[in-house]
Design a binder for these strands. Structure first.
Lengths: 384, 384
DNA sequence: AAATTACGTGAATCCGTGA
DNA sequence: CTCACGGATTCACGTAATT
């Protein structure tokens, strides 16, 4: 049995009060190598404080996808993401969620992350099994992959579900004030802006290839653990991968139990967690989330009624005219495009800031449209 | 039957080409008062272009829930356990989605909005019925209600699912270029920042109370209809409420069919839509991408004398050469074919856009042949 | 050396039409 | 129905290469 797991940190490293059953202690801060459900059976019931799960998404990708420059998109086509049908995926989901539920303390909570391919099925099964959803949280990616063919909206987010073990459980951990401080003294919203995992944080093998196709950013786990666990708590991750959950748990003074079927991933996780160092309070202070800056596309002003479709905009002197169209584009003498493009073309310039170039008539006065944008911002408050 | 619906706008108000079956025309721009599923049965199959649905998500539904066999689910009983509750909601959801699917054109798409209480069940059933999810979209509220107890994250978003009727349906409407223009020349993401419905837009009754508890903002519908419908299209809303979908549809030159059980809501919707004014056709023009441009075969440029038979084309660097033949094919080192095929073969690529790959020499300058095509288009004027 | 340009890449259900 | 083929299509970063 000792072969089947990798100890990645000396137990007892955290001096904080650890309230775990003795039966769990052999597994603390280790990665169990094996099937999630089989390994979960070995753990004592009602022993972990928090679960974070990043299960296979069941992407169902058909063919190869190329970027406009003909380069191939490196798809997630691993065997572990292949399921024969929705029914097969549902059975798998139900099984691991039931196994997790046995292990979770009555006041514990669970996080599951997914995309539209699988998250609706996960959410339904969570509800069917008696979990009680507390929030769905949207991870907004600062730098998502574009939609290359222009056939859909850019898939710019993933969804997390946060749920209690039971409907009645009221005493779950939620560090409301810590998150409010984190968020510059306004309560944390259900939409989080966080970059994807790239650069130095992304684990690479000797050839420079990514070790795991879907490594999650530590910033995401940081916020999850900060919100819903306390120092010394035990975090279970049944799809450990390359151990983001374990690395962040160690940094934040939490304990972890990881389960991972792939030995290569598990070994990468062990090395990574070994190298991680618990943060002191000062370092924690530095990890404050940046607030999302309010970007207001021109089209939004039309939706909001601050500018009317069909309205005529002019340059500062009133010499150049353009008509606003319903999609937020402008039209002037056969030239169409964004406020910036049309401004540039009409001036014969390479570029143009449409916000300062174009003006509208308001109450008999000519106002630059940037002023209308400021009004929009003001009406939105600082919450964007 | 005429009592069961309210005509809220004169039919034929929109002069745009309306491609609806005659059987649907009696229902156009009206609100049918009645149960969604029963009213949907009256509509002809495959007759609507787009569905927007804002179904109830309160599990203690006050009114009728139908099983797939149309039988009425007994009144919600406090003694029901959780599973029964979800089962009833699922049966209701399955029933109205099946009814909607019958009415939707094969290339039509559907939007459903919900919160974590119901959206996972809606998404699962959509997938089970064969709908094909295109995106999940997050409506990020600029001004959500705070969480007063401080026990959860501020619930600051709702989720929309956009799905095609069938997996294979490829030719659904998506105004990619219009949305890109809207968003100042970067493709529209799956997270939308839009204010909740308040202020003057919010319908109030004589006592100053809001008419409907969950009136959706017109900005949201504006973006939905702009993205996934064309002028003259028929938009079906089976949970019409106070008619946001109808009001925006009228403004944007679309037709609508609304179904609403509550006569008070339906009457408020009718009055509201009557007061709405359609935008003029010029303002409704959308950015059209290259896909919508008239196709100009390469050979046409030779016929027009813009490119000479026998002329040598090169890649951007002038390293690769090819000869133009009289039939509009290229020849280079024994390779012959279209400008696209030859470009692909010479690059060893799967595909190649010959219009942007090949260049010609004009007045001592190297110009991409796509520029010559644009001159051709310009010379054709708007007649195409 | 500092600044600029070029290149690679990420959980992706990613073309449309006519024969 | 399949098949062929014209030709349309990307954003934010991190890192390396170049000026």
């Amino acid at each position: 049995m000792s072969q089947s797991r990798i100890r990645s940190a000396p137990s007892g490293q955290t001096s904080a009060a650890v309230s775990t059953t003795d039966a769990l202690s052999p597994y603390l801060d280790t990665v169990l190598i094996g099937d999630s459900i089989a390994e979960l059976e070995k753990l004592p019931p009602k022993s972990v404080d928090l679960v974070f799960a990043d299960p296979p998404y069941n992407l169902q990708l058909a063919g190869a996808l190329h970027r406009p420059d003909q380069s191939l998109v490196d798809a997630v086509d691993d065997a572990w993401d292949q399921f024969d049908s929705f029914a097969a995926y549902d059975a798998f989901t139900r099984a691991w969620l039931m196994a997790v539920r046995r292990v979770l303390k009555p006041n514990g909570t669970i996080w599951v992350i997914g995309s539209y391919h699988n998250i609706f099925r996960v959410g339904t099964i969570l509800q069917d099994l008696g979990f009680w959803i507390l929030n769905d949280v949207v991870w907004r990616k600062t730098n998502p992959m574009p939609n290359f063919k222009g056939r859909r909206f850019q898939n710019a987010h993933e969804t997390l579900i946060w749920a209690g073990r039971d409907e009645g459980a009221k005493t779950y951990t939620f560090n409301y004030d810590a998150l409010k401080a984190f968020n510059e003294d306004t309560q944390m919203r259900s939409d989080w802006l966080i970059p994807i995992c790239s650069g130095g944080e992304r684990l690479k093998d000797a050839e420079g290839d990514k070790v795991h196709p879907t490594q999650k950013p530590e910033g995401l786990l940081h916020r999850v653990l900060l919100a819903s666990s306390n120092p010394g708590d035990v975090i279970l991750d049944p799809f450990f991968g390359t151990g983001t959950t374990g690395a962040v748990a160690k940094k934040l003074g939490r304990r972890f139990v990881g389960i991972e079927r792939d030995a290569t991933y598990a070994e990468a996780a062990r090395a990574r967690i070994d190298a991680a160092r618990p943060l002191d309070a000062e370092a924690l202070e530095l990890m404050r989330g940046k607030r999302a800056e309010t970007r207001i596309p021109f089209g939004t002003l039309i939706e909001a009624g601050l500018i009317a479709a069909g309205e005529i905009l002019t340059d500062a002197r009133g010499a150049v005219l353009a008509r606003v169209r319903i999609d937020g584009s402008l039209e002037s003498g056969g030239v169409t495009g964004s406020i910036h493009r049309v401004g540039a073309v009409l001036q014969g310039a390479e570029a143009c800031n449409g916000w300062t170039y174009w003006h509208a008539s308001r109450d008999g006065r000519i106002v630059v449209i940037d002023e209308l944008r400021q009004r929009m911002r003001a009406s939105l408050g600082t919450s964007a």
